[in-house]
Simulated scan of single mutants.
Amino acid sequence: MPQAVGVIQTVGFPAVLAAADAMVKGGRVTIVYFDKAERGEFLVAIRGPVSEVKIAMEAGKEAAERSYNGKISSHYIVPNPPENLLTVLPLDFTEEVEQFRVS
């Protein structure tokens, strides 16, 4: 089944928390990466089937915008990322997240 990567970057922590929560509840996806970006921004990345990532991303964007002072600075979906992208960037399923992987 083709996999996708979805990323949402927000201004402030509450918005990224709301986005992450909505994404895992909105679609069969797994959070594979979370970190601080720049200037008080945060990002969260998910993986899952392409159709599920699209649904989860919409839920995450809506939740982030609804959060107090929520603002999305960027978002993107990469359907069927090539293996070299997954090798170089921290987007692969790790041992830490493998137990939460949704198939």
Results as ranks from 00 to 15, higher is better:
residue 24 V to N: 01
residue 25 K to G: 05
residue 25 K to S: 03
residue 25 K to L: 03
residue 26 G to W: 02
residue 27 G to M: 02
residue 27 G to T: 04
residue 27 G to L: 04
residue 27 G to F: 10
residue 27 G to A: 00
residue 28 R to F: 05
residue 28 R to S: 13
residue 28 R to W: 04
residue 29 V to R: 04
residue 29 V to D: 02
residue 31 I to C: 05
residue 31 I to F: 00
residue 31 I to R: 07
residue 31 I to N: 00
residue 32 V to F: 04
residue 32 V to D: 12
residue 34 F to W: 10
residue 35 D to N: 15
residue 35 D to T: 13
residue 36 K to L: 15
residue 36 K to I: 15
residue 37 A to H: 09
residue 37 A to T: 14
residue 37 A to E: 13
residue 38 E to H: 11
residue 38 E to I: 14
residue 39 R to G: 12
residue 39 R to Y: 12
residue 40 G to V: 09
residue 40 G to F: 09
residue 41 E to Q: 15
residue 41 E to V: 07
residue 41 E to K: 08
residue 41 E to N: 13
residue 43 L to P: 07
residue 43 L to F: 12
residue 44 V to S: 03
residue 44 V to K: 03
residue 44 V to D: 07
residue 45 A to P: 02
residue 45 A to K: 12
residue 46 I to D: 00
residue 46 I to K: 01
residue 47 R to F: 08
residue 47 R to I: 10
residue 47 R to D: 09
residue 47 R to M: 07
residue 47 R to N: 10
residue 48 G to R: 03
residue 49 P to I: 03
residue 50 V to W: 05
residue 50 V to G: 02
residue 50 V to I: 05
residue 50 V to E: 10
residue 50 V to D: 00
residue 51 S to D: 14
residue 51 S to Q: 13
residue 52 E to S: 03
residue 52 E to D: 12
residue 53 V to N: 08
residue 53 V to I: 06
residue 53 V to M: 06
residue 53 V to K: 00
residue 54 K to P: 07
residue 54 K to N: 14
residue 54 K to Q: 14
residue 55 I to N: 11
residue 55 I to P: 04
residue 56 A to I: 03
residue 56 A to C: 00
residue 57 M to L: 06
residue 58 E to Y: 05
residue 59 A to I: 03
residue 60 G to Q: 05
residue 60 G to M: 03
residue 61 K to P: 02
residue 61 K to W: 03
residue 61 K to L: 11
residue 61 K to D: 05
residue 61 K to N: 06
residue 62 E to P: 00
residue 62 E to Q: 08
residue 62 E to G: 11
residue 62 E to R: 09
residue 62 E to C: 02
residue 63 A to S: 02
residue 63 A to D: 13
residue 64 A to M: 12
residue 64 A to E: 12
residue 64 A to L: 07
residue 65 E to I: 13
residue 65 E to W: 09
residue 66 R to G: 13
residue 66 R to K: 15
residue 66 R to Q: 15
residue 67 S to Q: 00
residue 67 S to T: 05
residue 67 S to E: 04
residue 68 Y to I: 15
residue 68 Y to G: 10
residue 68 Y to D: 14
residue 68 Y to Q: 06
residue 68 Y to N: 13
residue 70 G to Q: 13
residue 70 G to H: 06
residue 70 G to E: 00
residue 70 G to T: 10
residue 71 K to E: 15
residue 71 K to C: 13
residue 71 K to P: 15
residue 71 K to I: 08
